[in-house]
Computed example of a mutant assay.
Amino acid sequence: MTRLGWAILGLIVLAIAGFLSLTRFGGGGPHASQRAAIVPVDEAKSPIPGRLAVPVRGYPRNAIRDNWGDPRGDGTRAHHGTDIMAPAGATAVAVAPGRIEKLFDSKLGGTTLYLRSRDRRWIYYYAHLAGYAPGVVEGMAVTTGTPLGYVGDTGDAGPGNYHLHFGMQRMRADERWYQGEDVDPYPMLAAGGAGG
Rank of each mutant, 00 (worst) to 15 (best):
L148A: 03
Y124Q: 13
M140Q: 12
R172K: 04
M171G: 08
Y114A: 07
L103G: 10
G110W: 03
D119C: 08
P147N: 06
D153M: 07
K102W: 02
V137N: 07
V136M: 06
Y124G: 07
R170Q: 11
H80W: 15
H80K: 14
A88D: 14
A96V: 00
Y126W: 07
E138Q: 05
A130N: 11
D174R: 12
T143N: 14
G158H: 10
Y162A: 06
D153G: 02
D105Q: 15
G109L: 11
Y178W: 15
Y150R: 09
T111P: 11
A96E: 00
A173F: 13
A127F: 01
Y126I: 12
G155H: 03
Y126C: 09
G167Y: 00
R116H: 05
A130C: 06
R121N: 12
D119T: 00
V151Q: 06
L129A: 01
Y150A: 04
V142F: 02
Y114T: 10
L108Q: 08
L113N: 05
E175S: 15
A141M: 11
P97E: 02
V142R: 01
I123K: 04
A173T: 13
Y150M: 06
M140S: 11
A92S: 14
Y114R: 08
L164I: 10
R172W: 03
T143M: 05
Y126K: 09
Y178M: 02
A88K: 14
M168D: 12
N161M: 06
W122F: 14
G131R: 11
G155Q: 10
D153R: 01
Q169M: 02
D156V: 10
G167M: 00
P147L: 01
F166M: 11
Y162V: 04
A90F: 09
G98D: 08
G160D: 14
R120Q: 14
Y162D: 08
A141R: 15
G155C: 12
L164E: 02
R116M: 04
T144P: 00
Y150I: 14
M85Y: 10
D153V: 03
R120V: 06
G145L: 03
Q169N: 12
P97T: 09
T111K: 08
G98V: 06
I84K: 01
T143S: 08
T111F: 06
R172S: 02
Y162I: 12
Q169L: 01
M171L: 09
I100R: 00
D153Q: 00
L108P: 07
G145A: 00
E101M: 03
W122Q: 04
M171W: 13
G160M: 13
V136D: 04
Y125L: 06
R176M: 07
G89N: 08
N161T: 09
M168A: 05
L115V: 06
R116L: 03
L113T: 06
R120A: 01
L148S: 01
T82F: 05
Y114C: 08
D83V: 06
A133M: 12
V136N: 04
D174Q: 11
A173E: 10
G139S: 13
M171E: 11
V136R: 00
P134K: 08
R176I: 04
G110A: 01
G110L: 13
E138P: 02
G160T: 15
Y126M: 08
W177D: 03
R99N: 03
A94Q: 04
V93I: 13
A94V: 07
P97Y: 08
E101Y: 14
M140L: 15
H163C: 07
L113A: 09
F104S: 15
G158K: 05
